[in-house]
Amino acid sequence: MTTSTGEAVQFWVLAIVAVLGALGTVTMRKAVHSALCLAGTMIVLAVFYLAQGAYFLGIVQIVVYTGAVMMLFLFVVMLVGITAADSLKETIRGQRVATVVTGVGFGVLLIAGLANAHLSAFTGLGAANSGGNVEGLAALIFTKYVWAFEITGALLITAAIGAMVLTHRERTERAATQREMAEQRVRSGVQLPPLPAPGVYARHNAVDIPGLLPDGTPSELTVNATLRSRGQVRDLSGEPLTRVRELEDGADDYLDQDRPVRRDTSAANGSSEGAAQ
């Protein structure tokens, strides 16, 4: 006895999708991508459930798993965000090799065992589903498996309470008042007034050029923290300053010329190469 050709075609196509989804789940660098791959695989599995006569489970798979559980995953991914844990670089020595060896060994053993079981004949669910799949399941759940059902209900409640207990944070001390917070700030000695503006030299008016302190040294505080961390601070102290002095010395020539704008623009573009020319 075999299944229909249509189901076979569907299996081979969707099985490939399912395996690809599974591999994607494992190999994707970002958790969101993994979650999406997993969702794909789950939907394929839902289709397989439906194809095999497990209509109720197929629907539950889509609604509960793909719908609710995966959404929960995505929420947690959002909460946690991108971390160093997303790196695919292995840190434990021998872990990859051990994984491959045990994984292949386990899989080969499992599949070999299945192959040796000679499961050529199958009964099919025609008779079992004759009264309707949902009704059949319901009859079993509320008779034979009623105790297991009750206990899983208790388990779910326990899990829900457990999740609340785990994530709940109790405030153990009084919230600080605004005055206390202000005093705290003053006491910690951070910069209270606004930071000084960059590019205090009008001729080099740009956010990536630090302002100069009275002794001529640049002040890091004047540049945006993001630019600082990216290393995109343009330092015009030192050699560029001599260039500026030359410019000032030649101010008369400059004032005599008719076309001051062009030189201004090249200086404003501001690369040190340009300044050196």
Partner: peptide, 19 residues
């Protein structure tokens, strides 16, 4: 994860033993 490897190894051994 190292402990998980030994768990999977143990599971493989159990499958082998069963077979």
């Amino acid at each position: 994860r190292s402990y998980a490897v030994s768990m999977l190894g143990g599971a493989a051994v159990l499958v082998a033993a069963t077979l």
